[in-house]
Simulated scan of single mutants.
Amino acid sequence: MRIVANTDVCVGAGQCVLTDSAVFDQDDDGTVAVLIENPEGQRLDGAREAVTLCPSRALSLVED
């Protein structure tokens, strides 16, 4: 699975970073930055949660 972030719709709420700061970060404008594009195990679980929590639906998971 691969994390895809649509930075054009990101509102900078930071829910992804709060879910797993090892996988997600925010740039100076607050826009999501994906640190681990292909998370595995527990990181994948956190990425799934972040996708669900994202208020702007800027995050998605896609099959490789």
Rank of each mutant, 00 (worst) to 15 (best):
L61D: 06
C16Y: 12
P39G: 03
Q26V: 14
N6A: 06
Q26I: 12
E37K: 03
V17E: 03
L59W: 10
S56G: 12
A33Q: 10
Q42M: 14
D8L: 11
A58S: 14
D20Q: 06
E40A: 10
C10P: 01
V11E: 00
D28K: 12
S60W: 08
V62R: 13
R57V: 11
G46R: 10
T52Q: 11
M1K: 07
T7C: 01
F24A: 00
G30M: 12
E49V: 10
A50I: 01
F24I: 06
S21K: 14
L61E: 07
D29G: 02
D27E: 11
G14Q: 09
E40I: 13
D29M: 07
E49Q: 09
E40C: 08
N6K: 13
D29R: 13
A13I: 07
L53N: 01
A33M: 12
D28T: 11
G12D: 09
Q42D: 15
T52R: 12
M1W: 01
Q26E: 11
A58V: 02
A47F: 00
A22D: 03
G30S: 14
E40K: 09
C10G: 00
P55V: 14
Q42W: 03
E49S: 11
V11W: 07
L61C: 08
A5Y: 03
G30F: 05
A58W: 01
T52Y: 00
V11A: 02
E40P: 08
C54V: 06
